[in-house]
Amino acid sequence: MNRTMSAAVLHGAGDLRVEQRAVPRASAGQALLAVGHVGLCGSDVHYYRDGRNGNNELRAPAVLGHEIGGRVVEVGPEVPDELVGGTVVVEPAVPCRHCSLCTAGRYNLCGNGHCLGSPPSDGGLAEYLAVDAAQLHRAPEGLPAAAVPSLEPLAVAVHALRRTGFAPGQSVLVTGAGPVGLLVAQVALAWGARRVTISDVDESRLEVARAVGVERAFRPDELDGLRVERTLECSGAVSALDTGVAATVPGGRLGLVGTVPDEAVRARLAPVQRYEIDLVGAFRYAGGFPEAIRLVEDGAVDLVALGTANYPLERAAEALGRASGGTGVKTTVECTTER
């Protein structure tokens, strides 16, 4: 193997450079991946556009990308050789595995870990990546390589529905038909929801929703009178939070999945108190990958339909620019063709 590789390195807002770096080596407990595809997420867009995502600021050059699929090409000591050659998806949030939250199974809330692709931790927009083997999950056989990274947001969707206490037979509203919203809606249907409604201001995304089996796809102004037992807000828009609160029945539950801006404090929350609507947060995932993989293996969720554009690594800046403009649903970057 050539011991140098290309990597897309973010130096500042709007300043992404494809550079040559040394290929990392798999140390004890790690595997080396030939990165196939990386899906671009809203957090990647924020880092690229603003040099920060929420409270986390880019302070030194870093490689973005946490939705990562690839093939294991080498393993380090203490890792079984049979992992080599397998196609995997990466669980990018690496917990400490020792704190009280980790041992209680809520490792997504660990304050001592890090997340690949969240500066200063490098992510997957490179030809090769060394990853803790414990963070790898085998992808379903036959799943196209460009769709493998979408198992990560599918795990987000699984965790979000679990956080709302969803049960079969309930009605669900999903606000925001981006990748996560589309996956939440599909999982709700797969788990036996009585009725699933999804809303968005973008008609092209509503068309994708209908294509993946979510027949009740509407603009927000078409939801008057809708009442549901579970609402999942996946857009991060304050207006969508207002829509979700208004649609949730007394005693229902609303899950915050999208990153809500600080000005959300101006949202209409009085009904939350008056009608005892449970308001819960959902952050990343805790144990969501096995169920996400099962849903794809069973044909219950369509990941392929989400992919609307794919770029080679040398055009990663163009890919991020496209994703920043909100065009399409899921933009991916192909990092290496090694199979």
Rank of each mutant, 00 (worst) to 15 (best):
V18Q: 08
S239V: 15
A26K: 00
C115V: 15
M5V: 09
V156A: 04
G85F: 08
L303E: 04
A126K: 02
F283P: 00
P119A: 00
L189Q: 15
V214W: 06
A209K: 04
A60F: 13
A134M: 12
C110I: 11
Y275N: 13
L189R: 14
V212W: 13
V38T: 04
L206T: 12
L183R: 07
V196Y: 09
V75A: 03
P95V: 02
A22V: 14
A286L: 01
H66S: 01
P290L: 01
N112L: 14
G113Y: 12
A177T: 13
L32H: 06
V329H: 05
V79A: 02
E222P: 10
E276P: 13
C41K: 00
A282H: 09
E229C: 01
E19L: 06
T175H: 11
Q186H: 13
V245E: 07
E314Y: 15
F166E: 04
E233Y: 08
F166A: 02
A270S: 14
H66I: 07
V35K: 02
E203Q: 12
P149F: 02
A319M: 02
H46F: 08
S121R: 12
T87H: 15
G123S: 00
P140M: 00
A188C: 10
E74W: 10
R59Q: 14
P250R: 03
R339N: 11
P95G: 02
V249S: 11
L33T: 01
R3D: 15
G105L: 01
G169K: 07
V265L: 05
Q186L: 08
G321A: 08
G86M: 11
P61E: 09
N310P: 13
E314Q: 14
P220D: 07
E314G: 12
R274F: 15
V158P: 07
I68L: 05
A264H: 07
R52P: 02
E74Q: 11
